[in-house]
Simulated assay, not measured.
Amino acid sequence: MRLSSLALATFGITAMTVAAFAASHANPALEGPVKARNAQMGMISYHTGLLGSMAKGETPYDTATATAAAENLAAAAEMNRAVLWVEGTEQGAVAGSRAKAEIWSDAAGFEEKAVGLETAAAAMVTAAGTDLEALRGAMKGVGDACGACHKPYRGPKN
Score class of each variant (00 low, 15 high):
residue 136 R to H: 06
residue 132 L to R: 07
residue 107 A to F: 03
residue 68 A to Y: 03
residue 82 A to W: 00
residue 72 N to Y: 14
residue 106 D to T: 00
residue 67 T to Q: 15
residue 89 T to E: 08
residue 147 G to I: 03
residue 97 S to R: 07
residue 96 G to R: 02
residue 79 M to Q: 13
residue 84 L to I: 06
residue 114 A to Y: 06
residue 121 A to V: 04
residue 105 S to R: 01
residue 77 A to G: 12
residue 148 A to G: 05
residue 117 L to A: 05
residue 91 Q to H: 10
residue 136 R to T: 03
residue 99 A to I: 11
residue 71 E to N: 15
residue 137 G to R: 08
residue 81 R to C: 11
residue 88 G to N: 14
residue 127 A to I: 09
residue 103 I to R: 02
residue 122 A to D: 15
residue 144 D to F: 05
residue 95 A to W: 07
residue 65 T to G: 07
residue 131 D to H: 07
residue 94 V to K: 06
residue 111 E to M: 01
residue 57 G to F: 13
residue 89 T to Q: 10
residue 122 A to P: 09
residue 60 P to W: 05
residue 86 V to M: 13
residue 127 A to Y: 15
residue 82 A to I: 00
residue 92 G to H: 07
residue 83 V to E: 15
residue 82 A to C: 06
residue 135 L to Q: 11
residue 61 Y to K: 14
residue 84 L to S: 05
residue 142 V to H: 09
residue 106 D to N: 03
residue 71 E to A: 08
residue 123 A to S: 08
residue 103 I to W: 07
residue 126 T to M: 10
residue 94 V to E: 11
residue 127 A to G: 12
residue 61 Y to G: 08
residue 149 C to F: 05
residue 85 W to A: 13
residue 146 C to R: 12
residue 112 E to P: 01
residue 91 Q to D: 08
residue 91 Q to M: 11
residue 78 E to T: 04
residue 56 K to D: 15
residue 96 G to T: 01
residue 101 A to K: 07
residue 69 A to Q: 06
residue 101 A to I: 07
residue 119 T to H: 03
residue 137 G to D: 10
residue 76 A to H: 04
residue 112 E to D: 11
residue 140 K to W: 06
residue 122 A to R: 12
residue 120 A to W: 04
residue 94 V to I: 14
residue 77 A to F: 10
residue 80 N to W: 11
residue 134 A to K: 09
residue 87 E to G: 02
residue 144 D to W: 01
residue 75 A to D: 15
residue 95 A to M: 07
residue 120 A to S: 12
residue 138 A to V: 01
residue 73 L to C: 05
residue 89 T to D: 10
residue 64 A to S: 06
residue 140 K to I: 14
residue 99 A to F: 02
residue 81 R to F: 10
residue 106 D to K: 00
residue 67 T to Y: 12
residue 107 A to C: 01
residue 104 W to N: 01
residue 133 E to S: 15
residue 139 M to F: 09
residue 104 W to K: 02
residue 93 A to L: 12
residue 132 L to D: 15
residue 96 G to F: 01
residue 75 A to W: 07
residue 102 E to Q: 03
residue 101 A to V: 01
residue 148 A to D: 09
residue 123 A to G: 05
residue 81 R to A: 14
residue 125 V to Q: 09
residue 86 V to T: 15
residue 63 T to L: 10
residue 119 T to S: 04
residue 80 N to R: 06
residue 123 A to F: 08
residue 141 G to K: 01
residue 86 V to G: 12
residue 113 K to I: 02
residue 75 A to I: 04
residue 60 P to L: 09
